[in-house]
Design a protein around this nucleic acid. Structure first.
Lengths: 355, 355
DNA sequence: CTGAAAGCGCTTACAG
DNA sequence: CTGAAAGCGCTTACAG
C-alpha cells in the first residue's frame, strides 16, 4: 500500500523517459549526461520529490569508505585521549553494517617527530575523510592544505576555533566553561583567592586555556565578587616537582580558597590537596572524568569536574563524517558539546553512558 | 577483495546443501524445516560465523513496523511531556529510511478517562512495539498483561522501577538525584532549613518523589549537616493559591535557606521567589529545563535544575525499540539517564542538544 | 552521451 | 518439508 507512495529511481527514469543509469548519473553529479537530459531529470526529481534510499544504495555499492582518525594516543600524563579513541571505536562498531572502515593514525603527544610521521602517513593514505584535533596548529597546516586540494572532508574535535572548510567543528565553549567554573566557586565562597594552575605540555596551546580563564575572571567581575584569581604555569610533570612548586605558592598566598585547573590534569593538584592537610577547605574545579580524576572526586579532593565529553566527541565525529560521506546528509557546521557538571554524586552515570 | 570475507546466506546455503529459503527459515526460527535440516544449517551458520546483513534484509522486507507511543500530552501545568514526544519525533525522522512508522497515543494527564480511552486504542491497534511511561500504575496493568499475552515488546521511559518483562527500562536514579540536590545545597549553605515542596497532580505517584526526598535527607545526615528539611504537598495548581500557601509557610519558618522541588513544576516556586522580596538568598533546586523554568533560571530565581533529559528519553526509547524489533539487537535491560546539573551558565547547551 | 542487464544479500510468494 | 525465481532500490561495468 505504501509502496506506491515511495518514488524510486525507476519512477524518475520512466517519467523522464531515460534509463536508470542516466538518473543515477544525474543524482551523483557524474559526467556523461547532456545538459538537456540532466535538466529534464532534475526537474522530474523535483516534481516527484524523489529521495534516494540509502539502504539500497549501500547494498549495491561496492566501495567501502575509509575514515581516517588522526589523534593523540593515551599518554602517561593523561588518559584523556583514550576516550575520543574509544568513542571512535564505538561508532565504528555501530556502523559495521555499512560499507565503512576506520583507519587510526595515533601519535604520542610528547613527540612532535612521531606526530609528523603520522601526518605523512595520512597524506599518503587513501582515506575518504578525516577526524582530527586542532591542538597542534602549525604542523597541521600542511595536512589541511593537502585535504583541501584533494577535496577530502575533515572534522575537528576538541577544537577551539572555527574552520570554514571543515565539514564540522565539534567543540565546547571555552569561555563559558570558565564562566561556569566561576559560578560554581561563587556558590562555595565569596571572598579569598582562586589559584589558576595551567599544567602545560609541549603541544598545548595557551590560547584556549586563556579563554577559560577569561570566562572565570569575567564572571567574578560581573558579579562584583571579592574573589581574585592568580595564574601559574607548571610544565614539569613529576608529582614531586609539582608538590614543591605548590608548597611555595601556598606558603606565599594565605587565602587560597579555590583552585581552578583549566584542563584535565587535575590529578596533580588533587593529590597535593589530599596528601597535604590544609587549615581550611580548598575547593577544586577542573576538567573531565578521567580514571585518575575520579579517584579524587570520590575522595572529596575534587569538588567539580566540567566534562568535555571526550568519548562522545570521538563518537560523534565519526558518525557525522559517515553521515556526510555515505548518507550525504547535511551536517551542522558547529556542534557545541554541553558543559556537564560532574560531582561525586553523579559521576557514575557519565562513566559508561553511551547514547 | 573484502567481498570474499563476508559470508552471506548464499554461502551458508551452499555449504549446508540446502536452498536459500531454508536458511532464511532457520535464521528466523520459522516453522517448516525438519529438525535434521535445521540443525545442519545452524551448525554451518556457527562455523561460518554468519551475520545477517540488515540493510539487505530491510530492503527486501515488505512489512513496515509500527511503533506505538503511549504518553501524556503537554498540559497547561507543565510542558514536560512535550519533550519526550519531541524526542520520539526526532527518532522517527532519523529512521525514515527504515521500514518503520510511529503511531502516537497521547492523553491529557489530568483526565483518567481519556487515558483509558487511549489504552483501549493501543490494545485494539496492530502495533509491533510500544513505548510508555509507568507513572499511572493501576491503569496500565491490563495493558501490560495484554502486551505480554500478545508477546508485544515494550519499553518504559521515566520509570522508577524495573519491569522484568520490558525490553528495557529507561530511568534516572531518583535516590541519587536527591543526594545530588543535597550536595549542591551543601555547597551553598551549611545551616538552616530546606523546604521540600511537592506539587502533586492526580496521576502523580508519591513513591518516586519520596525516593528523591530520602536521598536528600540521607545526604544531609551522612554529612552531619545542620540543615533540616520539611516537606509540604501542594495540589492546587493556581499561582494565587500557591502564593497564599507559601506566604503561610514562610511566615512560620524563619530560617528557610533552600527550596527543593522534587519534580519539574519549579516555576510556581520561582515566580514566588522572584515576585516576593526575601530578606536573604533562598537557593532553589528543581528538575528539568522546561521553557517555563529557563526563564527563572536566567533571572537567578532558580539556582540548579537537575535534568532528566526528557527529550533524550523519548528519542532513546524509539531507537532501542527499533533496534530490538528491526535490527534484532540485544538491548541492555536498564538504561540510566545521567543526572545533568543545569545552571544559568550552561543551560543553553542542553536546550537543543541532540546526540 | 545513453541504456539494458547483472548484481548487492535477503525475503517472499509459489510450486512442488 | 523444501527450493527456484522474482523482487526490494540502487550501482556498476559493458556495449553501443
Amino acid at each position: 500500500m505504501e509502496k506506491k507512495d515511495i518514488v524510486g529511481i525507476k519512477d524518475v527514469a520512466k517519467r523522464a523517459n531515460v534509463g536508470l543509469a542516466t538518473v543515477d548519473r544525474v543524482i551523483h553529479g557524474r559526467s556523461g549526461v547532456s545538459k538537456k537530459t540532466r535538466e529534464k531529470v532534475l526537474k522530474v526529481i523535483e516534481e516527484l520529490n524523489y529521495k534516494p534510499n540509502m539502504m539500497a544504495s549501500n547494498l549495491s555499492k561496492k566501495k567501502t569508505f575509509v575514515l581516517g582518525v588522526l589523534l593523540p594516543n593515551v599518554s602517561k600524563e593523561s588518559s584523556y585521549w583514550g576516550l575520543p579513541v574509544k568513542g571512535v571505536e564505538r561508532a565504528g562498531k555501530e556502523l559495521q553494517h555499512y560499507p565503512v572502515r576506520i583507519e587510526k593514525f595515533l601519535y604520542d603527544q610528547a613527540s612532535v617527530k612521531e606526530m609528523r610521521k603520522q601526518i605523512l602517513k595520512v597524506i599518503n593514505s587513501k582515506i575518504d575523510g578525516l577526524v582530527l584535533t586542532s591542538k597542534f596548529a602549525e604542523e597541521t597546516e600542511i595536512l589541511l592544505q593537502d585535504c583541501n586540494e584533494k577535496n577530502l572532508p575533515y572534522i575537528f574535535i576538541d577544537s577551539n576555533e572555527r574552520d570554514e572548510k571543515a565539514v564540522c567543528t565539534i567543540q565546547q565553549s571555552l569561555y563559558e566553561s570558565g564562566q561556569l567554573a566561576g559560578q560554581l566557586f561563587n556558590y562555595c565562597f565569596q571572598e579569598g583567592n582562586i589559584l589558576v594552575l595551567f599544567f602545560k605540555n609541549i603541544m598545548d596551546s595557551e590560547a584556549g586555556i586563556n579563554k577559560k580563564i577569561q570566562g572565570l575572571n569575567d564572571f567574578l567581575k560581573e558579579n562584583d565578587s571579592l574573589v581574585k584569581t592568580r595564574k601559574y604555569v607548571i610544565s614539569n610533570f613529576s608529582q614531586e616537582q609539582v608538590d614543591k612548586e605548590l608548597n611555595k605558592i601556598f606558603a606565599g598566598n594565605e587565602n587560597i580558597k579555590g583552585v581552578f585547573i583549566p584542563n584535565s590534569r587535575v590529578g596533580y593538584m588533587a593529590r597535593y590537596l589530599h596528601n597535604n592537610a590544609m587549615d581550611r577547605k580548598v575547593y577544586l574545579i577542573g576538567y573531565d572524568y578521567l580514571t585518575e580524576n575520579n579517584e579524587y572526586l570520590q575522595k572529596g579532593a575534587i569538588d567539580f569536574l566540567i566534562s568535555q565529553r571526550p568519548e562522545e566527541q570521538g563518537y560523534k565525529a565519526i558518525i557525522k563524517l559517515f553521515e556526510h560521506i555515505v548518507l550525504k546528509k547535511n551536517i551542522e557546521p558547529e556542534i557545541f558539546i554541553p558543559l556537564d557538571i560532574i560531582t561525586s554524586k553523579n559521576y557514575k552515570y557519565y562513566l559508561n553512558y553511551e547514547d
